[in-house]
């Protein structure tokens, strides 16, 4: 039960409350660059979500088994060369950035090859943006968050397992898709508007992004409230949940 609450909170937090684009400012480049057409934005969001999931899987596996201090696989290998005490304390976390970026680059390459074979039309419409997913901060950010939750956890029992890591990755990608699709919808309408000349292009997009970020700040604290509500007894849960849903309804 606790696990389900945890997963729900991680998912909500990643997708809406601490949205990747509006709260952490990662993935701003495609947010400004690709968000012109709704269908293209949606495709981009899906591709990013897919790559985030693969990269999160790879980075969780590598962090837990190889990179973190005293990881099982690396200390087993080191055991052949050094004394057991030294082998147990082996710490390869300095290599983590290089490993992550390599994992991301290769999974992007994989997605690119798959799309070219399976969906040539979608592949063509992405054009140059597909290889650029490699340099999308959102993916590396997800890997780094997972690293800090796995290797940086003070209490080993609180370290994230693979399920939590994948939840964060998938819903982070969903949050990115939500924001980029909303933005592209607004920008399609904006084509018909008479925007003052200096604001045309990126400037007005940023201002709209600011307004949307303000709307998303309205969710601040929802996760803490939900956690409190879910860990208390039943009647309170329902009351608070009802209140929250009413709040959300009126906010939207």
């Amino acid at each position: 039960m606790n696990y389900i609450i945890d997963i729900t909170l991680i998912a909500l937090s990643a997708a809406i409350i601490n949205n990747f684009v509006f709260y952490y400012f990662v993935g701003i480049c495609p947010f400004i660059g690709v968000s012109r057409k709704v269908d293209l934005a949606f495709g981009m969001g899906c591709a990013v979500t897919f790559v985030i999931c693969i990269a999160a899987f790879i980075s969780w596996t590598f962090t837990a088994y190889i990179l973190m201090p005293g990881a099982p696989l690396s200390s087993w290998i080191a055991g052949f060369f050094t004394s057991p005490e030294q082998a147990a304390g082996i710490d390869l976390s300095i290599l983590s950035y290089i490993v992550y970026i390599f994992a991301i680059a290769s999974s992007v390459q994989f997605v690119e090859m798959y799309l070219r074979k399976a969906f040539p039309m979608l592949y063509k419409s992405f054009g140059v943006f597909l290889p650029l997913i490699t340099t999308n901060c959102a993916i590396l950010f997800a890997c780094l968050t997972i690293m800090s939750k796995v290797a940086g956890a003070e209490n080993p029992a609180e370290a994230w397992d693979l399920g939590r890591a994948l939840t964060l990755a998938f819903f982070g990608g969903v949050g990115f898709t939500i924001s980029i699709v909303i933005m592209s919808g607004i920008r399609e309408e904006l084509e018909l508007c008479d925007v003052p000349k200096p604001f045309r292009g990126a400037a007005i997009t940023l201002i709209i992004g600011g307004i949307m970020a303000m709307a998303f700040t309205g969710f601040t604290g929802v996760d803490a409230g939900l956690k409190k509500a879910m860990t208390q007894e039943k009647p309170v849960v329902q009351a608070v949940m009802k209140e929250k849903s009413m709040e959300k309804g009126s906010a939207l």
Binding site: P196, K197, P198, A203, L206, T217
Partner: peptide, 18 residues
């Protein structure tokens, strides 16, 4: 807060464009 970053950068960008 996050929204301020968008607003400031958007407005400064417009000023530079102008």
């Amino acid at each position: 807060l996050p929204p301020g970053a968008f607003f400031t950068f958007g407005l400064l960008l417009a000023v530079v464009n102008r």
